[in-house]
Amino acid sequence: MDEFRKVRLFLEEVNKVESIKSLEALIAPLLAEFGIRHYICTNIYGFSPLPDMKPFFGTWDSGWVQHYIQCGLFRDDAVTVYSNGLENDGRPYYWSDIAAIKGLTEAQRKVMAEAWDADLHEGLVIPLRVSDDEFAMASMGGRDLKRDPIIQGILHTVSIQAHRMARILLLREANSLEKGSFLPNRLPQSPKPKVEKVTEAEREVLRWLAADLGPGEIATIRKRSLNTINKQLSSIRSKLIVDTNAGAVTVARNYRLIN
């Protein structure tokens, strides 16, 4: 198939890009061939794209993005709610799949309707969960995007590879490193977990969490109420800047809070 030849070419070229701009220039024509005229990859390194709009990349519809930000549509965008896929397993999903969800609020439906008015009739969301504490996402849309497994696979390939390259470029740029250097795993401006603020009691909870105990079991062992343990877990997640307990364990290990 001709499409696969284009993907092979893309895979050769993507490893040669030297900047985010070159990356964007590489993906734009390929995406356009499949009816995508708005593409944005956000939350790289777990960063929210707002308020400082970094780091992210894409080839977006400026009019839609401006409208999206100015009207605060990000507050009610159902796409971000399902950042790890509709089945929470990282599979891509279409905007029309979200529209079919019964529990959508009126505000969420309004966002979808406004995207339609901006000629973004169908979209695809690709979760890019690199680790427990890093959920990126690529969302793309257009007027003529077809629901097709081959096209979906190709767009997924483009997103995975472009995101992978973007991470490398951002890390290289932020750390002033040469190509081929061993890269650290985070950007310097990544919000640093406040490990020094984790209390001894919270460290104890983290140790039990790392031993694969749930909040109920930890409450029993520590002779505390479940409410107390959940509050401690919430505090831990906030201090370590993660969304999940598994992410908290990962960060705690990385910063040697626990063995």
């Binding site: 397993d89 990282g90 979760p127 890019l128 969960r129 690199v130 680790s131 995975i160 995101h163 991470r167």
Partner: peptide, 10 residues
């Protein structure tokens, strides 16, 4: 699994 491939990007 694709999810594993994504994680390998790190």
């Amino acid at each position: 699994e694709t999810s594993i491939f994504v994680q390998s990007g790190k």
